[in-house]
């Protein structure tokens, strides 16, 4: 049987369209999602199928439409809010951080917030600092939200389907750099549960943990390191909240070395949190402290060479692996 191949962006659309066909409470809103077909063509053709009441072009007004969608979710609708870039969500920080993840708690269980916020996260390509935010660094700090960050097309569909059906607010982090990535994507209903990491590549010498776009940097590094005789196990976390620590711990107990790769800044980041949790769970198993590779601790630069060096790229990951294994 031939496997059907889709681009990451088309996998995202398939998840949304299938859920919208199944449930009238699901609708999509955001800038340019309807008549423009999506700034990144994720929602191409959806206006034609679902009409303007369910595929809603908004003005450039993130705080307003994010808050409006949260109000709608409180009444039991299931909005999907597209941020053209998560960088633009900063002007909607109050509704998405102060309302969505806290509503259930502050109302003592009366009003949940079944909503998905999704869009491009992280450096695109020479977009400069204001458009290159990795919001997982800041937003994963907040209890009450879930955070999914797919690296492959099949997970894009499976995780987004799960996100839309989830009764809690889900922050869904995509990467502009992955939207054209092709992969096998199941045609029918496809659900990837939250909190289940996946071993993307098996290995014995070191565990590399990452999520989102940098998983690809990790796989690239693992390929290069194999030529040096270093066997890497690469784990794709897939969701940051909830975090599947068990899969990571199982691997580290086998390899006794670990590198965490996180595209956000290092200070107070998912990477630092995961490293701390690994130290706690695997203290007696580790032959070295957990190494971390992050984006450089500077605003994202524009120049091509600077941006490439800024990212947690394969070269920097390979250096961290060698260091973790005491390889000079």
């Amino acid at each position: 049987m031939s496997e059907r191949t889709l681009e990451f962006r088309d996998a995202l659309r398939e998840a949304m369209s299938q859920e919208m066909r199944a449930n009238k409470r699901v609708f999509l809103l955001g800038e340019e999602v309807a008549e423009y077909d999506g700034a990144y063509k994720v929602s191409r053709g959806m206006l034609e199928e679902f009409g303007p009441q369910r595929i809603i072009d908004t003005p450039i007004s993130e705080s307003g439409f994010a808050g409006m969608a949260i109000g709608a979710a409180m009444m039991g609708l299931r909005p999907i809010v597209e941020f053209m870039s998560w960088s633009f969500s900063l002007v909607a920080a109050d509704p998405i951080l102060n309302n969505a993840p806290k509503m259930l708690y502050m109302s003592g269980g009366q009003f949940g917030c079944p909503i998905v916020f999704r869009g491009n996260d992280g450096a695109g390509g020479q977009l400069g600092s204001t458009h290159s935010w990795c919001v997982e660094g800041m937003y994963s700090n907040v209890p009450g939200l879930k955070m999914a960050i797919p690296a492959f097309a099949d997970d894009a569909k499976g995780l987004l389907t799960t996100a839309i059906r989830d009764d809690d607010p889900v922050f869904f982090l995509e990467s502009e750099r992955l939207l054209a990535l092709k992969g096998h994507v199941p045609e029918g209903e496809h659900l990837v549960p939250f909190g289940q990491a996946l071993v993307r590549r098996s290995g014995d010498d070191v565990t590399i943990v990452s999520f989102g776009r940098p998983v690809h940097f990790c796989l690239e590094a693992a390929e290069a390191l194999e030529a040096e005789g270093i066997s890497c196990e690469v784990i794709d976390g897939r969701t940051i909240r909830p975090l599947d620590l068990d899969t990571i711990v199982r691997s580290v107990k086998k390899t006794n070395a670990c590198v965490v790769v996180d595209q956000s800044w290092s200070f107070g980041s998912p990477g630092s949190e995961i490293a701390a949790q690994i130290h706690q769970a695997c203290f007696d198993d580790l032959d070295n402290h957990v190494m971390r590779v992050h984006s450089a601790d500077v605003p994202t630069p524009y120049a091509w060479n600077l941006e490439q060096e800024y990212l947690p790229n394969a070269r920097r990951i390979a250096e961290a692996v060698r260091s973790a294994l005491y390889v000079a």
């Binding site: 705080s63 409006m68 949260i70 709608a72 509503m103």
Partner: peptide, 26 residues
Amino acid sequence: YGGHGIVGAQTPLGTGLAFATKYIDE
């Protein structure tokens, strides 16, 4: 639907509540 502590934050929410009633009705 609350009781909201941040000044003005309830105004997009209120818009969303009315949006939802309209969406449900229509």
